[in-house]
Design a protein around this nucleic acid. Structure first.
Lengths: 206, 206
DNA sequence: ACCTGAACACCGTTCAAGT
DNA sequence: ACCTGAACACCGTTCAAGT
């Protein structure tokens, strides 16, 4: 009599199937050309089925963007547990994790602040994901301040600087703008470390 | 017998009329909902007229994005002429000009690195605009290095750091993410100055 | 509950045709 | 040269209907 996991696919997990189908399509065709009908077809359902799980095409896109924020938050948390007493290292590795995510799923990174979704006029899930990610980052910067290694400045201002730099860099990298090649994790790590050194130098107490 | 300026509108300047009509529509409805047909209607021409000036909907969007790079370049040049012997100030003001542009025309800023257009697979005009803007920024950083005020580091790396930070910040601001309000130029200047101080501290020789 | 097909008003793009 | 209207294959979204 128990239901457990339904027989997979056609029932039960359509929401996730749709998201999984959407990401490669998004990466391939760009937001402007992404079609809900195509996503539905890729997931093997009729073109109206997605409306059971997403109110809107926008809602689907918001859910994709939220994945980026979850990932960012996750990177922050992992960095904290991996380097418990090294706040500077926490910041570096959290940033690095984000850069790696950027080369892996650039389309999602683009969604996060690309103006396609609005962030102060969006579903609660996305809003919460964004806030939680920001809070995680503040936490890492705050760790450094408590340890007395950063200059005396507003923790929010320091966090904004760090996030701006990392996020900006992730966009440059995915745009292929840096004159030096940045496609592999090794290349990205090198570029990231260089920029992080300059950023951290500005944050540190002198 | 001379033609001079044509009788305005319907002839002559359609390309610019289309761009002018597109910007507010873009700001209002977002890239995903922007329609070429609507732009044409707003410019007062039939829905196929735009194809005389843009090969594609993408080409129109690229032209809009190029405006952002022109503006960035212009800001860099003005900052250099306004503060001839103060490279640090040049960087600050160039960044500030960009942030002001961002709150004025967020939709264009979003286009520049939002992944909607590709930048290494785009028309020559956009490519050139982007390269020229980057070169202008490198110039400003180079000024500072020649003056011996920045730390000894690759000029490209320093430029990438500065651009990442400023561009990242412009996205945070347009997303309304900073906890403190940043809508007026005064508010933006304050936030910009705070972040710039941290950024510059990292770039300076110690 | 979850999915479907038909329907509607709209797209981007092409093309033959007008001045 | 520059612009048009008709046409085509596609959209997002709604809705009555099926299981």
């Amino acid at each position: 009599m128990r239901k457990d996991r339904k027989n997979a696919y056609h029932h039960g997990d359509l929401r996730n199937s749709l998201l999984a189908a959407a990401e490669p399509l998004l990466a391939q065709k760009g937001v402007t050309a992404l079609s809900l009908r195509e996503v539905a077809k890729a997931a093997g359902v009729s073109h109206t089925a997605p409306y059971r799980h997403f109110h809107d095409k926008t809602a689907l896109i918001e859910a994709l963007a939220a994945e980026g924020f979850y990932r960012l938050q996750q990177g922050c948390e992992e960095a904290q547990t991996s380097y418990p007493d090294k706040p500077e290292r926490q910041l570096l590795e959290a940033g690095m994790a984000y850069l790696f995510f950027a080369i892996e799923k650039p389309a999602i990174v683009h969604l996060m602040f690309g103006g396609v979704i609005s962030l102060d006029d969006c579903g609660v899930d996305l809003k919460q994901a964004a806030d939680a990610a920001f809070a995680s980052l503040v936490q890492i910067v705050s760790n450094g301040q408590k340890a007395g290694i950063y200059q005396k400045a507003n923790v929010i201002d320091l966090t904004m600087t760090a996030w701006s730099t990392v996020y900006g860099l992730s966009l440059m990298i995915t745009a292929g703008l840096p004159p030096t090649q940045t496609k592999t994790r090794a290349q990205v790590r090198k570029m990231g470390k260089t920029i992080a050194d300059i950023l951290l130098a500005g944050m540190l107490k002198r």
